[in-house]
Amino acid sequence: MLCRYDIPLAEVRAGIVHELDAYWRSKRGGKDIPGWSDIDPAEMKRMLPCLFVVEILREPFRVYYRLVGTKASLFRGDLTGRFLDEIEECTVKAREELAGFYRLAAEERRPVFCEDEVTVGGGIQAFFGGIFPLAPEGRPVDRCLAIEDFGATKPKKVATHQRGMHHWWVQRTR
C-alpha cells in the first residue's frame, strides 16, 4: 500500500485528526459545513503545528496554501503562499492526487481522510490526514483545513515509501 485516499474515519489511527474532525463538526451549527468565520485558532492550539489552511480557487480548480503549521512545514517545507500545482519538490502524480483529494472534500462538502505509509528508521509507519471543507452559508467551498499526524516521527527519519517516491518529503534532503 502506498497511499489510500477517502478512507473511513473509523480507520484513522491518529488522535489529532479525530480532534479536528470533532472540532469541525462542533462548528457546523445548523449548517452542512462551517465557514471560515466559525473557526477560532485559539480553540485549536494543540492542532496548529500540524494544520494547513488552504484557499480553494475554481475555474480552474487550484489549491493555495494560506498557512502551514510549524511541524507540517518541517515535513512538507514552507508551502505558505504557494499553489499546490507549482510545488516543484512534489511529483506531478502526487500533486494531481492531492488536488483530487481537496476537490473531493470541496465538491462533496464533507471531510475526507487518508493513510500514507512511509519508511521510518527501517520500518513502515502509517501517517494519517484529513481535509475539512469550509464555506460561507449557502456558498461554494472557499477554504479547507487540512491536518496530518506525523506522530513522534522526526522529519529526517522519514526515508521513503514502501513502493517508491510519492510525496515530496522523501525527496528533500535533511
Results as ranks from 00 to 15, higher is better:
Leu98Arg: 06
Lys71His: 06
Gly123Leu: 15
Asp38Asn: 01
Asp6Leu: 06
Leu134Trp: 01
Met1Ile: 10
Arg62Glu: 01
Cys144Asp: 12
Gly151Asn: 05
Ala135Ser: 14
Leu145Glu: 00
Ile16Ala: 05
Leu84Cys: 10
Asp149Phe: 08
Leu74His: 05
Asp149Glu: 05
Val53Tyr: 08
Lys93Arg: 13
Phe150Arg: 04
Arg163Lys: 07
Pro140Ser: 06
Lys93Gly: 09
Thr153Tyr: 09
Arg139Ile: 11
Arg28Thr: 10
Phe101Pro: 02
Cys50Gln: 15
Arg143Lys: 14
Tyr23Met: 00
Ala72Cys: 13
Tyr64Ile: 03
Val118Met: 08
Leu79Ile: 05
Gly100Ser: 09
Cys50Thr: 15
Arg172Gln: 10
Glu148Cys: 12
Arg95Gln: 07
Gly122Val: 07
Thr160Tyr: 08
Arg46Ala: 14
Gly35Trp: 01
Ile39Met: 13
Arg28Asp: 14
Gly30Pro: 03
Lys157Val: 07
Gly77Thr: 10
Leu51Asp: 11
Glu137Ile: 10
Glu86Ser: 15
Pro49Arg: 04
Val63Ala: 08
Arg95Trp: 00
Pro133Gly: 07
Ile147Asn: 04
Ala126Thr: 10
Leu51Tyr: 00
Arg28Leu: 14
Ala135Tyr: 03
Asp40Ser: 09
Gly151Trp: 12
Arg13Val: 14
Ile16Lys: 13
Asp116Gly: 04
Arg139Thr: 11
Leu98Met: 11
His166Cys: 02
Leu2Ser: 15
Gly81Pro: 03
Phe132His: 06
Met47Asn: 11
Ala10Cys: 05
Leu51Val: 12
Tyr65Val: 12
Pro8Met: 04
Arg76Asp: 01
Gly81Ile: 00
Ile147Thr: 07
Ala105Pro: 02
Cys114Ser: 09
Phe101Ile: 12
Thr91Pro: 07
Pro133Ala: 14
